[in-house]
């Protein structure tokens, strides 16, 4: 079952290709853990031109990850002690703390504990911008999905949607608007 509300693939004269591309896209989005963040997806391919385009609507609203989400913060002598629960975030956390307080005020006495010499609690500092990471992963996924020879690419990303187009020839504005028109008609169909 597709977790997406709408997932359409249109490839003129290539039914098998359309079916297979559906599988490829699902595989890649699942591999990168992106499938739940995409609401609708429209894929348009014209093999004769050749051009490959993806338009998607995003399920946005991922809040940034704060220090208190990844660690327990407690007041200690001369500052605050941060005990990280998920070690995956340790490097990001250290980077944020160094940038905010300076290296001389951040100490790491053991593998999962950081002590910061400060008066204000660091619990509300953002550790990672998940939204930005998601965008990075999404771009990576689109590059993997697009057929390899399609070296001329353009990616338009907004808060709510993305439009990716790739072709072998130069991307002309007429081609882009033509493809956008096709995708619009897929949306309205």
């Amino acid at each position: 079952m597709d977790p997406m509300e709408v997932f359409k693939v249109e490839i003129a004269g290539e039914e098998f290709g359309a079916k297979k591309y559906r599988e490829i896209i699902m595989d890649i989005l699942q591999d990168l853990g992106l499938i739940r963040s995409i609401g609708r997806l429209y894929v348009y391919v014209d093999v004769k031109k050749p051009v490959f385009a993806v338009y998607g609507l995003l399920r946005t609203g991922i809040p940034p990850l704060l220090v208190r989400d990844v660690a327990d913060v407690a007041q200690a002598q001369g500052g605050f002690q941060i005990k990280v629960n998920d070690e995956e975030h340790m490097s990001d956390l250290l980077k944020v703390l160094w940038a905010k307080y300076g290296r001389e005020r951040v100490e790491q006495p053991s593998r999962d504990v950081v002590v910061v010499a400060t008066d204000t609690s660091p619990s509300d500092l953002p550790v990672a911008d998940l939204e930005a990471e998601f965008r990075q992963d999404l771009t990576d996924a689109l590059l993997r999905i697009a057929p390899e020879g399609f070296r001329n690419r353009r990616n338009e990303m907004t808060d709510k949607s993305f439009f990716f187009i790739a072709a072998e020839d130069t991307l002309k504005s007429e081609l882009i608007s033509e493809v956008k028109e096709k995708i619009r008609s897929m949306e309205n169909a």
């Binding site: 490839i11 004269g13 290539e14 098998f16 290709g17 297979k20 591309y21 093999v47 004769k48 057929p147």
Partner: peptide, 17 residues
């Protein structure tokens, strides 16, 4: 490729290609 005894060419999903 000619130095081998046989070759398998792997292509994609589109008839046209």
């Amino acid at each position: 490729i000619d130095e081998h005894d046989a070759v398998v060419f792997i292509f994609g999903n589109f008839v046209e290609c």
